[in-house]
């Protein structure tokens, strides 16, 4: 479960930009949540704070009851590695490695090599036949599927996606979204996605809209 209390975040780029202005949020375990909003509204900033990639200026974030907003970078990295998964708009797969090796990379940070699990995940994202291909030999949608498998390798309880379908055509975007939601349902894993596409956001259980740093739940 994710709980946020009075979250503030400012950026100082010449003038102070108030990106998040007192966000309060609660997300249940296994829930799928879409964060909607126009470009520059602060949804990625919120996601970064929730995913422990960035620190809020003020406020508290709780993950499964533990306050995580003031942890050291080492502790945050540990939580990201074991509890959280990320899929970004650009997959950033390592081009020198095969798809399967890319999937195994986060596990190797834990000193593990769960090859069978990686193969199972490749199968789950529909790429078992292409496990040994390099990312350059895969299409954009397939690369994003590998990135999803990579995000799932350490068995995270929460998966964050930031415009994960933003770089794909409509058909591929829907396929990826379906895959994410299926995984969310199967594994009862919390899914928090940032998107600016309200049509895609309709597929999520809960939708929030962020405008001028204020978060509102959509009906």
């Amino acid at each position: 479960m994710i709980k946020v209390e009075g979250l503030f975040k400012n950026y100082k780029t010449g003038v102070v930009e108030h990106v998040l202005r007192g966000i309060d949020l609660e997300i249940d375990s296994g829930e799928s949540v879409a964060l909607l909003g126009p470009s520059g509204s602060g949804k990625s900033t919120l996601l970064n704070c929730l995913g422990l990639l960035d620190s809020p200026d003020k406020g508290k974030i709780f993950l499964h009851g533990q306050e995580v907003s003031r942890l050291s970078e080492k502790e945050r990295a540990r939580i990201r590695l074991t509890e959280l998964g990320f899929v970004f708009q650009f997959h950033h797969l390592i081009p020198e490695l095969s798809a399967l090796e890319n999937v195994l990379l986060p596990a190797s940070l834990l000193g593990q090599k769960p090859t069978e699990r990686a193969k199972h995940l490749m199968q789950r994202v529909g790429l078992e036949e292409k496990a040994h291909k390099s990312p350059a030999q895969l299409s954009g949608g397939e690369q994003q599927r590998v990135a999803i498998a990579r995000a799932l390798i350490n068995g995270p309880r929460i998966l964050f996606t930031d415009e994960a379908t933003g770089n794909l055509d409509r058909e591929k975007a829907l396929e990826i979204l379906e895959l994410l939601l299926e995984i969310n349902r199967e594994q009862k894993m919390t899914l928090v996605s940032v998107t600016h596409d309200s049509t895609l956001a309709m597929r999520y259980e809960t939708k929030y809209s962020l405008q001028n740093g204020i978060l509102k739940k959509c009906s």
Partner: peptide
């Protein structure tokens, strides 16, 4: 840098 920082986002610690 984006490849490397993606690994950081996925849980690579500063020490690693």
């Amino acid at each position: 840098d984006k490849d490397m920082m993606t690994l950081r986002a996925l849980g690579m610690s500063p020490l690693q």
